[in-house]
Design a protein around this nucleic acid. Structure first.
Length: 364
RNA sequence: GGCCCGUUCGUCUAGCGGCCCAGGACACCGCCCUCUCAAGGCGGAGACCACCGGUUCGAAUCCGGUACGGGCUACCA
């Protein structure tokens, strides 16, 4: 049996979103219950959006939640580096290999031309996609121009046929190839696009199961095509339903708190947040609902994952928080209360009073 | 516009052909406990299982269509 290895890759944009934490949790449950390895990977291929504080934020948030992993930027590991911007030569080499195999090609179109093509297509009511302008440039000429002209590398997508996946959550899903354009694999700044980097990294890092948010499902055919181009085996995939805002749309800033640090600051217990989040999109199939991290590692099952997205509900989180506060030993509660109580307050008195307030607390 | 996904109480969900004229939990309401507020206990209200057809002796559960919602459609991830 091949080794179980899962990875998670919260976007390094400066705050740790609870939606990606929920996804991380599911990766964690599955890896741990199968005695597998967990990898943290930083996907910073978009230089424009990268926030240098992100690594601290991710480490602090995940650690606070009680999530531990085996390989990552700071713990190292046999398949590093774990930061994509440090793996550039790897992606470039693979992209070149694809060009040499005639599975990909150099494209010299400017952003302006691309935008013009798109707006013309839109005006005519057509599907907006790359018109394959550079696909027919002879290989030798393309290679020569590539040596001195700014360019990207695009994947040659077959004209017809289809790609399909048997998703662990959504079942059999297929896409007609005609709906997919010749994807950019390598950007003109030498960075890979996400579509290229994930496939290479998941393969190189020997990831056995890909668990990621539902919003990635539509781009899965692009990844499948890249796997196919390299001749690599596609690992089992599971797309996980999104955590939604109260209005049913993707959870975003306008919905209020979305970062784990905010819940920490508002006095929520990580145990409560874990319990609450785990139950959005998954249920044990029974009527139990109070779970510790350990319970979840034992009981979580992929086949009980919901397909529909779940809305965020503050009242329910508050209730879970009260439950977990009451489960704490008084001394432990005093310790947790520490940062939320003025320094000059007498700790002995606090300890004496805790048993009386513990019964009625909602948050710290 | 195109592609893909989804749809059970306000919310999180159970349900995977008969046990369901649909169960639990949060929130809400009432009662009990109680010096107060909570917590806890008990009870209540709340879902024509989106809609329309089909398959079947029998469908929330299987199939098709429609509607609505969402996601993706970038040299973002």
């Amino acid at each position: 049996m091949t080794e179980i290895r899962l990875r998670f890759a919260p976007s390094p944009t400066g705050s740790l979103h609870i939606g990606s934490v929920r996804t991380t949790l599911y990766n964690y449950f599955f890896a741990r219950q199968n005695g597998g390895q967990l990898v943290l990977r930083i996907e910073d291929t978009d230089q424009g959006r990268f926030d240098p504080r992100a690594l601290d934020t991710i480490y602090d948030g995940l650690h606070w939640m009680g999530i531990r992993w085996d390989e990552g930027p700071r713990e190292g590991g046999a398949f590093g580096p774990y930061v994509q911007s440090e793996r550039l030569p790897l992606y470039q080499r693979h992209a070149e290999a694809l060009v040499n195999d005639a599975a990909a090609y150099h494209c010299f179109c400017t952003k302006e031309r691309l935008a013009a093509v798109r707006s013309e297509q839109a005006a005519r009511g057509e599907i907006t996609r790359y018109d394959r302008h550079c696909r027919s440039i002879p290989a030798s000429e393309a290679r020569e121009r590539a040596a001195r002209e700014k360019h990207v590398v695009r994947l040659k997508v077959p004209d017809d046929g289809e790609v399909a996946i048997d998703d662990l959550v959504y079942g059999h899903v297929s896409w007609p190839l005609r709906a997919i354009e010749d994807q950019v694999l390598l950007k003109s700044d030498g960075f890979p696009t996400y579509q290229l980097a994930v496939v290479i990294d998941d393969h190189e890092m020997r990831i056995s199961h890909v668990f990621r948010g539902e919003d990635w499902l539509p781009s899965t055919p692009k990844h499948l095509l890249v796997y196919r181009a390299f001749g690599w085996e596609v690992p089992p995939h599971a797309h996980l339903p999104n955590v939604l805002g109260p209005d049913g749309r993707k959870l975003a800033k306008r919905h209020g708190a979305t970062a784990v640090s905010e819940f920490h600051d508002e006095g929520y217990l990580p145990e409560a947040l874990v319990n609450f989040l785990a139950l959005i999109g998954w249920s044990p199939g029974s009527e139990d609902e109070i779970f510790t991290m350990q319970d979840l590692v034992e009981r979580w099952r992929i086949d009980h994952v919901q397909r529909a997205g779940g809305k965020w509900d503050r009242d329910r989180l508050d209730w879970f928080d009260g439950i977990h506060i009451r489960r704490l030993e008084p001394d432990e509660l005093v310790a947790r209360l520490g940062p939320f109580v003025p320094k000059e307050w007498d700790r002995g008195l606090l300890r004496a009073v805790v048993p009386f307030i513990q019964e009625r607390m909602r948050t710290l």
